[in-house]
Design a binder for these strands. Structure first.
Length: 737
DNA sequence: GCGGATCAC
DNA sequence: TATGGTGATCCGC
């Protein structure tokens, strides 16, 4: 489907034509900036789409201009040196040229099938829609190459080298294979994928083209080939190369030294491959998926509430798609396109994987909120919204996690604690899963654990959750940011009032050092967290108990009490349990609970075995460390709490889902950092720069009250029906010999 | 990691 | 004539 490639319209010319300025042969470059901006404004009145196209074109022109300036500064000596280097690489490539394979590229025009599918999603699983390619043709393709590579519904590569060898012994009448499809089909035969792809485009429609497997044939084929025909060279690259006088592959080869100086290594390597007629000779299977997303275009939506709803719907769709493939990821990205066609993406990465609607939405919502807030009081006038999930853990990540778990279990065995009986008496997988859940501790927990473990020489716990320690990245960023802020404030003013980001108390008139100590103390906190609790039962040493007593040197007594209450609130909040008869939800105050718990913990030292059976009876389907810890507490008939207060924003979260809550904490944290960084960026951008040409070519245009023209195919998001195009099918019989 | 851009289909 | 949706990758911070 390269039709779009050829038909990409020249919006500039079109607009100039409409404005009666088309006699300006010099084009945009020949106009001064005011005129350009005026044109953009005019264009935007008529069509925001054109306006944005012009803006983008201007940016590309700027890139080209920069490139030309760079080119002008290249000395002949640099060029000679580059020539040597490039030619050395070209020689290597030449030597590795492989002409022994026969690759076929099949290109079917499945456009109509695609349209059909889009408008009748219910057909998706039926043979009629996909059948033309996948049901009918795929089997045939497999005859030629069982390992053929399907690029999409309508496109595939075959390596028929082996087939051809076998085929030589076939009787004549068997050497023809007819394919009858409802769609046109093109194919090309060449020694590598790049050439094969170009070939299939050569004799369209329904053509076949072959490049013989000898160097001369390849070079002849390449000689006058416009670079734009090659996969990977798009509109922009074409334009940039054109500015350097490069249109054909021959010219691309001639300018190879210059290109190595103007483009990235990846790019000029790619260029060199093309200009030598080289390409992939084996069909590499696609690796693992890197991301998954949903996005939707609609007529303008400006109300924040609708935008949040939309966002949630998208998250829900995404979550369903993710579930089909069993994927979970750490990075959520939202994409926004406003009515002026300006696209923005905003991403946030959390410390543990997410996959449910609620988890994804918790992150996406905040990203969206940040954007809405940034433009306040103006609404975001959106025409598209998308949500993407990425940063899927790779196999190594998973193995690493497994190792951590196994290591943890072994560590548990070595010590005299209860997990031994877990391995023997319970479903191991279940327990592994529960441990996986324990990765979803909030970063505060992780940080506490990290610090605690580093002090516990007697407890060989390093295998537990190396990942948790590493994933406290967000924390590192926060702390770094904090330190930066502190440093600057210290430099400017010695009597700054610091607000501790952990306990949210203002620290007046104290030195930076004292403040840091305070923050560290806050981070260490009382070690009665739910997570570390189970270890405390069997491992807490007397030194650690002593440490607890001396941990807040800079607190007044009342402060200390307040602080402890706050901390206990946060910490105990991590406990989550289903309500059972044994475990009434009503009950004692937080303080009473904490005190009681604390005392009991001390009393139970040094070791208290678990009752794992009770664990299994009472816990919900998945058992986390938190659950185990709280269950052990439950043995002493203590209640649990469900009010979750975010330690970052300090607001109570209306959820009883631990994972969700932890996602919230991560997001809250990210948000703070992002806003800080943005502030810095804005400040930076506002500073006048010397000797720097302003690259701000945003060409911001008037916001007019005129309602945008409703695009034909688009409907309001909530509406499910779409107009059906007139899709008369091509009916052509196609064959290849 | 983030965000903008480019490219393919 | 005039788009939309999904996914990958690159580059410069």
């Amino acid at each position: 489907m390269d039709s779009t490639k050829e038909k990409n319209g020249n919006y500039k010319d079109d607009l100039l034509l409409r404005m009666g300025l088309n006699d300006n042969k010099a084009g945009m470059e020949g106009l001064d900036k005011d005129k350009i901006n005026k044109i953009i404004m005019e264009a935007t009145k008529g069509s925001r789409f054109y306006g944005n196209e012009l803006k983008k074109e201007k940016q590309v022109n700027q890139r080209i201009e920069n490139m030309m300036q760079q080119k002008a500064q290249i000395t002949s000596q640099q060029l000679r040196k580059a020539q040597l280097q490039v030619d050395r690489y070209a020689m290597e490539l030449e030597q590795s040229r492989d002409l022994n394979n026969t690759i076929v590229h099949i290109d079917m025009d499945a456009f109509y099938a695609a349209v059909e599918m889009r408008d009748n999603p219910e057909l998706k699983d039926k043979p009629i829609a996909v059948g033309s390619m996948s049901m009918l043709v795929k089997e045939i393709l497999a005859d030629y190459d069982p390992n053929f590579l399907a690029m999409s519904l309508d496109e595939a590569y075959l390596n028929i080298t082996k087939h051809l060898q076998e085929r030589q012994n076939w009787p004549e009448d068997k050497r023809k294979y007819f394919i009858k499809t409802g769609n046109p089909l093109e194919n090309g035969i060449a020694p590598n994928t790049m050439l094969a792809k170009v070939c299939s485009d050569k004799n369209k429609p329904n053509g076949q083209y072959q490049v013989l497997p000898n160097r001369q044939a390849v070079m002849d084929f390449i000689k006058d080939l416009p670079i734009r025909k090659v996969s990977g060279i798009g509109k922009v690259t074409e334009k940039m190369l054109k500015a350097l006088g490069i249109i054909t592959c021959t010219e691309l080869y001639q300018q190879r030294a210059l290109l190595s100086l103007l483009f990235s290594e990846t790019s000029w390597h790619h260029f060199l491959h093309i200009s030598l007629g080289l390409g992939s000779t084996h069909l590499a299977r696609d690796g693992e998926r890197k991301s998954m997303s949903v996005e939707r275009t609609f007529s303008e939506i400006s109300k924040a509430e609708e935008q949040y709803n939309l966002c949630q719907e998208l998250c829900s769709e995404l979550a369903q798609d993710l579930q089909k493939e069993g994927l979970k990821g750490r990075t959520v990205t939202i994409k926004l396109k406003n009515v002026n066609f300006e696209v923005k993406t905003r991403a946030s990465t959390v410390s543990s994987v997410v996959s449910t609607t609620e988890e994804i939405f918790a992150i996406a919502k905040e990203l969206l909120r940040t954007e809405i807030d940034a433009d306040f009081p103006h609404p975001l006038r959106l025409r598209l919204m998308g949500v993407r999930l990425s940063s899927f853990p790779n196999e190594e990540d998973k193995r690493h996690q497994q190792r951590s778990i196994i290591g943890f279990l072994q560590a548990g065995n070595q010590s005299q604690s209860a997990p031994r009986c877990i391995l023997e008496n319970t479903d191991k997988d279940q327990f592994l899963k529960s441990l996986e859940m324990s990765h979803k501790k909030s970063f505060f927990d992780k940080k506490r654990s990290e610090r605690k473990w580093s002090h516990q020489d007697t407890f060989k716990c390093e295998a537990v959750d190396k990942q948790s320690l590493q994933t406290s990245h967000s924390f590192q960023v926060l702390k770094k940011k904090m330190n930066e802020n502190l440093e600057t404030s210290e430099n400017s003013n010695n009597s700054q009032i610091f607000t501790c980001p952990i306990c949210f108390r203002e620290q007046r008139s104290i030195s930076l050092e004292a403040f840091n100590k305070h923050v560290d103390a806050c981070l260490d906190g009382p070690s009665i967290s739910g997570t570390s609790n189970m270890f405390s039962h069997s491992h807490a040493s007397s030194t650690e108990v002593n440490k607890k007593e001396n941990v807040y040197p800079s607190f007044s007594q009342s402060e200390k009490q307040d602080y402890e209450t706050h901390q206990r609130n946060s910490e105990i909040n991590f406990i989550e349990l289903p309500e059972t008869e044994d475990n009434p939800a009503k009950a004692e105050s937080v303080d009473a609970l904490s005190d009681k718990h604390s005392k009991e913990e001390c009393a139970s030292l040094p070791s208290k075995p678990f009752n794992i059976e009770k664990c299994c009876q009472n816990s919900s389907s998945t058992v986390s460390l938190e659950d185990i810890a709280s269950l052990s507490r439950q043995e002493s008939s203590q209640p649990y709490l469900q009010a979750l207060v975010c330690p970052v924003c300090n607001l109570e979260q209306k959820t009883s889902d631990l994972t969700l809550f932890n996602v919230h904490v991560d997001v809250c944290l990210n948000k703070g950092i992002i806003q800080e960084l943005r502030k810095d960026k804005v400040n930076l951008a506002n500073q006048p720069r010397e000797n720097t040409k302003s690259t701000d070519n945003s060409g911001r245009v008037q916001k007019t009250a005129t309602k945008p023209k409703r695009p034909g195919l688009m409907t309001k998001y909530s509406a499910s029906k779409k107009t059906k195009p007139n899709n008369s099918r091509h009916t052509l019989d196609v064959f290849f010999k």
